[in-house]
């Protein structure tokens, strides 16, 4: 904060005596300080939120509500997304693989792509749009209308009451959603392969199972747990720190969706890299 103010004062008083590169450096420095302090605030928020997940009092009623909101009500979106993705995967890999008569690999391509990569990432992104935005809007409105302050004055810690149930629900429910999505995605590939590409049902399913390893599924589930945490965390963080007014809430919602989507893609790469070296 002090550094920011100093930089501001410098600009006001000494602007004219600074050369162009100096001014560039100054601006760069200010951006870096701003970025680092934002990262610091997010880290502090994350630490507090996680700590309150594990210390009493707990709010089981609120947790159940979040589990239903985040998990159950996301089922249609996740189901549709993975179903169509499975279908498209079968079609696309058929047009590629039939050129070198490898069409029999389609069941494997579908199941591996869905479980390892597409179901977690697409479910993560869909839930970011649905749940992350809703959390940011709800908490942002509560911030703006002073409901979060009111919680504090009624002897209730807002981190425990608002943040912890959402973080837990996101981290627990996304893997379950993805597990369902895995099945539906494979089914989508099956439908297209059997009904329009002429696969024999028994063979397709046999091939799907044959090369599938437990690590393919579990690595996807671990990823999705991280994505679920990211989505709810960014929704909570942006909503909780929303600026005053309707505009502030709108910005919080946008930021929640954009930042969690980007973080999902970034973390997806690094987690895949880790799984790649650990389990292949």
């Amino acid at each position: 904060m002090d550094a920011e103010q100093n930089a501001g004062r410098l600009e006001q008083t000494g602007c004219s005596i600074l050369s162009v590169p100096q001014r560039f450096l100054q601006r760069l420095g200010r951006a870096a300080i701003g970025f680092l302090s934002a990262v610091g605030r997010l880290a502090e928020f994350t630490g507090r939120g996680v700590m309150h997940c594990f210390t009493p009092p707990f709010f089981p009623r609120l947790l159940v509500r979040q589990l239903i909101d985040i998990g159950y009500y996301s089922l249609p979106v996740v189901g549709l997304t993975t179903f169509f993705t499975g279908m498209v995967l079968a079609l696309q890999s058929y047009s590629g693989f039939s050129r070198f008569s490898a069409a029999s690999a389609i069941p494997n391509v579908v199941v591996l792509s869905i479980t390892r990569e597409l179901a977690p990432v697409l479910a993560g992104l869909m839930v970011a749009g649905r749940v992350g935005a809703a959390i940011a809007a709800e908490l942002g409105t509560m911030r703006v209308t002073e409901q979060i302050d009111a919680l504090t004055t009624l002897s209730t810690n807002p981190y425990k009451y608002l943040i912890a149930p959402r973080l837990i629900a996101g981290t627990v429910m996304l893997p379950l959603l993805v597990l369902v999505g895995d099945v539906i995605g494979v089914f989508g590939g099956y439908v297209v392969s059997v009904y329009s590409l002429g696969f024999v049902p028994g063979t397709y399913l046999h091939n799907t199972w044959q090369f599938l390893e437990r690590g393919d599924v579990t690595s996807g589930l671990w990823k999705s747990a991280v994505f679920g945490f990211i989505v709810t965390l960014m929704g909570c963080y942006n909503g909780f720190n929303s600026d005053r007014g309707a505009q502030g809430v709108g910005a919080a919602t946008t930021n929640a969706v954009v930042s969690s989507s980007i973080l999902i893609l970034v973390f997806d790469y690094f987690l895949t890299q880790i799984f790649f070296t650990v389990i292949k």
Binding site: E138, T145, E146, Q147, D149, A150, T153, L154, S155, T156
Partner: peptide, 29 residues
């Protein structure tokens, strides 16, 4: 905090809760 009660300028009622749940909030929590 347990010694304090506060009436906010804008009311700050919890809009996801029924009226009685709002009033009972401090007693329950």
């Amino acid at each position: 905090m347990k010694k304090f009660g506060m009436l906010f300028q804008g009311g700050a009622l919890f809009d996801s809760m029924k009226v009685w749940e709002n009033v009972a909030f401090g007693l329950v929590q």
